Amino acid sequence: MMALDPKQSPRQVYTEVSDEKDDRAPGIYQRARLPNPDKIDLVEVYRYTTEIADLIKGVIDAAPALDMNDDWNLPTGVSKVGSGPKPNFRIEPDATRVFRRSMELAASLQGEARSRGGQVAILCLDYERFSTYYLAAEYQHSREVFVIRSRDDINKLRYMNRRIVFSMPEYVAGLPFDTVVLADANANLVPDGGFRGHSERNFPSELYLGISRAERRLEIIASKDCDGLSPYLSALAEQDLLLAA
């Protein structure tokens, strides 16, 4: 049995998309050497609330169209968990305030998450800022925060002792958290210029992955000095799927 959600893999799904001819096998099943698979679409979601599911669907619908074969056109899941708080967003002036607000929010929501038997995670969407944030988290908040800097750190989670997880979405793929603070959902992560096409493929996947880590509560933070909230999310705020805090 193989479970597959290609939208969660920005490295393998989006960054390998190319206009050049691809001589590899055309479908994921052939590449996995599964000649006669029985494909089952799992569309009932028992992890996150209806409000988070609606936001995820909005991100998927807003993502640019990609020229990919039918293996990647997976149906959108429907939440069976029920209703919860609507995701919020806020805009802070700069990186320092984004980090401080992320820590404040995570700390204030930790008790609520623990009462449900869950954890809190701060997930950063900007790799360059994360490389600065995690140093501050390790030295200033070592007792409150457990930093995951790569996929290799996942096996260390048993030592976290209920601390707040500080990481990036890609490093915690597959892990659920009761509450997620998604930091630096910034407009400049899809910049104009020669690499815009790559960013337009990578960023929606990272955004989808970060949002879908949250089970119950989702707080999103953007930075004013990075052009504010990503247009992908601004459009969803206009649809009332995301509220200004």
Rank of each mutant, 00 (worst) to 15 (best):
D54W: 04
T15Y: 04
A107H: 11
V45R: 03
R151I: 07
R100K: 14
R196S: 14
D192P: 14
L233F: 11
K224I: 04
L135H: 14
D153W: 04
E170C: 13
D54Y: 09
A183M: 02
V147S: 00
Y48F: 02
V43D: 15
S102Q: 06
D192C: 11
F130G: 13
T49C: 06
K21F: 06
G210F: 03
L42H: 06
Q140E: 13
P191V: 01
R116N: 14
D94E: 00
Q8E: 02
F99D: 01
S115R: 10
P35N: 07
K39P: 09
R143Y: 08
T76S: 14
F146N: 01
L243D: 08
V190T: 10
N69R: 03
I154N: 01
R216T: 07
Q8D: 04
I154P: 01
C226L: 11
F146H: 03
Y134M: 09
N161R: 15
D152M: 08
A25P: 15
S142D: 05
P87H: 07
C226N: 12
P169A: 06
K57Q: 04
V145W: 05
S102P: 15
Y29V: 10
D22P: 03
G118Q: 08
D225K: 02
L135N: 13
A62N: 10
V120F: 03
E51T: 06
V180H: 02
A245Q: 10
A113V: 05
V120R: 00
E16S: 12
D126N: 05
A53C: 08
A237L: 05
G82Q: 01
P75W: 03
V120L: 06
A235E: 13
R11Y: 11
R151Y: 08
M160Y: 03
L175E: 01
S142T: 06
S223T: 14
L229A: 07
G27R: 00
R11H: 10
G194L: 14
K39C: 04
A106L: 02
R158E: 02
M2V: 13
D178E: 08
A187S: 05
L66C: 12
V120E: 02
L207V: 04
L55P: 12
Q12R: 06
E16Q: 12
L209F: 04
K86W: 10
F99W: 01
T132H: 13
F177S: 02
N161Q: 12
K7M: 11
D38T: 08
S18E: 04
A63I: 01
V147Q: 00
A3L: 15
D41L: 06
R24L: 11
L243C: 09
Y14G: 15
V13P: 02
Y139G: 13
R217N: 10
I148M: 01
A173V: 03
L236A: 15
I28W: 01
E92V: 15
K224H: 15
V172W: 00
D227C: 11
Q239H: 08
H198E: 13
M103N: 04
S115V: 09
A25S: 08
D192N: 15
A3E: 09
I28M: 03
S199M: 15
C226Q: 14
V81Q: 05
G228H: 07
S199L: 09
A107K: 15
Y134S: 00
R101P: 02
A63M: 02
E144M: 04
I164F: 08
F195H: 14
G82Y: 09
G27T: 08
E238D: 12
S9V: 06
R162V: 07
